Computed example of a mutant assay.
Amino acid sequence: MVRTLAVARALVAALMLLAVGRLAWQGIADGSFVPWNFFGYFTIQNNLIGVAALAIAARYVGRERPEWVELLRLTAAVTLTIVVTVYWTLLLPTDDEPWAWTNLVVHGLSGVALVADWLVDGPRRPLPWGLLPWVMAYPLLWVAVTLVRGATDGWFPYPFLDPANGYAAIAMVVGGIVVAGLALGALYMRATRWRALVPA
C-alpha cells in the first residue's frame, strides 16, 4: 500500500507536469507563448503547486509529515478544486479544445487527484484550525498581482477579472471564491480529523 501510494503520487505528478509542459510547447510552436502570461494563469501555477505537493508527499509515505507539508497539500487540494469548478462552470464556453488531454489533466484530473490523495492519506495529526485562513493566502496574493497587471498593462487571464467589468463585480466574484475556498478547506480538514485517533 505504501509503495503503491508513492508510485501513484509520482505518476500523477509527472502527468500533470507533462500536461503543463505540453501546453507551453504548443504556445511556443504557434508563436503565442509569452512566459509571464502563461505562468500568470491560476490554473498553471496551481497545477505546478499540486505537482510539488504530490512529489514532496511521496517522500513521506508511511511516516508523519511536517505541518507545512500538510498545509501545502491542503492548499493544493482546495485551489485545484476551485480551478476545476470555475473552469467547468464559467470558462468552458471560452475554450476551443475542452476535451484535449492536456485540458482534462489541468482542469480535471489534477483536482480529483489532489483531493483523493488528501482524503486517502490525510494528516496523522489534525491541522490547527488557525491555519485555515492560510489556505487562501496564495490565491489572494495572485488576485492582487493580477489586478495590478490588468490595471497597468491590460492583460488579464480570465474574463471575470477584466477591469472593464468594474472592480465591484470583480470583488463579488473573488469574494465568493474566497468564501468557497475557506468552506472547502474546513470540509477537507474535518474529513481527515479522525486520524487524530489513530496512533502515529
Rank of each mutant, 00 (worst) to 15 (best):
P128L: 14
V135Y: 02
A169P: 03
R195A: 12
P133D: 02
W99P: 01
L131P: 02
A200K: 08
L54F: 08
I82T: 04
I49G: 11
R195E: 05
G27P: 11
R63G: 03
V148L: 13
L17A: 06
A58W: 07
L114W: 08
W88N: 09
F160T: 10
Y188F: 15
A13E: 01
A116L: 00
E67R: 12
F160A: 09
I177N: 01
Y188M: 07
A191C: 10
V84Y: 02
L15T: 09
H107P: 06
R149L: 03
A58V: 01
R124F: 00
M189I: 00
A144W: 13
D30I: 08
L23W: 00
A171E: 13
W101P: 02
L127F: 06
P128S: 14
L92D: 00
A116T: 05
P163M: 13
W36H: 15
L54P: 12
T146E: 11
G154D: 14
V173W: 15
A19E: 12
V178G: 03
E64G: 15
F156A: 11
W99Q: 07
A58L: 12
V7T: 09
M189H: 03
T152S: 14
P126E: 03
W88K: 09
A100V: 00
R65S: 02
E70C: 10
R125F: 03
V20A: 08
L104E: 09
L80R: 03
A8C: 13
T146R: 09
H107G: 00
